[in-house]
């Protein structure tokens, strides 16, 4: 068994995590959909109608990729961090640590489940958006690729936060103080070309800019940075997250005494 994946364990954890999603349907799926719909009503409908088109795209349609990314990022982090933090909080982590499960299997199952939930959510928001604004997807495969890469990458980030956090406050602090500002300043609601030159350069240090730009390109064929750079930065960010997760498991950081 040592050389083979513990498929039964991966399936068990994945199912357990997905079952939690369905048990907490309101919190997991419905609330983000409602809040995103409100964004469309306010920014797409009420305010958006008074804002000129950006790159020949109506403002309501322009913000769709950014809004999906906003939800994808926050929900990936929230799902994954809660998924691994809660067993630590309740003490049920003992079972995971004493089970014949490799670190790769733990990550695959927890991150896989968190990313699945986020992707489902992203697709639901996309469907919801189509009710408010006319949508077209120029590169559907690229759209799916960015959706999956972003969901996995930020689920990894959430997993790291969930292991690092030793109270509920810490669980919230990174998403609130770092991820949300980066997402808002990453071009969710505007093109960074609309910023003064100095702030455009500052924005290039924000990794979320590349995610949103790449994702928006897959919809409308327009982007703030080239698609190649967007993809490279996304993969680089995912690799860095994977490296941190590997280090956590190698050292047992915050998991084993």
């Amino acid at each position: 068994m040592s050389s083979h994946l513990n498929v039964h364990a991966i399936r068990a954890i994945y199912r357990f995590e997905m079952a939690r999603t369905w048990r907490t349907l309101m919190q997991s799926i419905i609330s983000p959909v409602i809040s995103t719909s409100l964004y469309f009503v306010v920014f797409g409908g009420a305010i958006g109608s008074r804002i000129p088109e950006i790159d020949n795209i109506s403002y309501g349609a322009f913000i769709v990729p950014g809004l999906i990314m906003l939800s994808l990022l926050t929900q990936s982090i929230s799902n994954a961090s809660f998924g691994i933090y809660f067993p630590k909080f309740t003490g049920t982590i003992y079972e995971l640590l004493s089970a014949p499960v490799s670190y790769i299997e733990i990550v695959l199952s927890y991150v896989g489940a968190a990313a699945t939930k986020s992707i489902i959510l992203g697709l639901i928001i996309l469907a919801t958006a189509s009710l408010f604004v006319p949508l077209r997807i120029a590169h559907p495969l690229w759209m799916v690729l960015f959706l999956v890469l972003t969901a996995v990458t930020f689920s990894l980030v959430g997993f790291i936060i969930g292991i690092w956090a030793d109270n509920f406050e810490k669980l919230q602090v990174v998403p609130l103080l770092i991820i949300t500002p980066l997402t808002f300043l990453g071009g969710s609601f505007y093109s960074i070309n609309m910023l003064p030159e100095f702030w455009q350069k500052v924005s290039l240090f924000n990794p979320v800019v590349y995610l949103i730009s790449g994702f928006r390109w897959s919809f409308y064929d327009v982007s703030d940075v080239s698609i190649g750079i967007s993809l490279s930065v996304t993969v680089l960010f995912m690799s860095a997250s994977l490296a941190v997760v590997a280090w956590i498991f190698r050292t047992g950081y915050k998991l084993k005494r």
Binding site: H8, A9, A12, A19, E95, V101
Partner: peptide
């Protein structure tokens, strides 16, 4: 039932 079944899967048993 689910929690006991989960434990069995976690330990690699069908």
């Amino acid at each position: 039932w689910n929690t006991v079944s989960f434990s069995r899967g976690l330990f690699g048993k069908p």
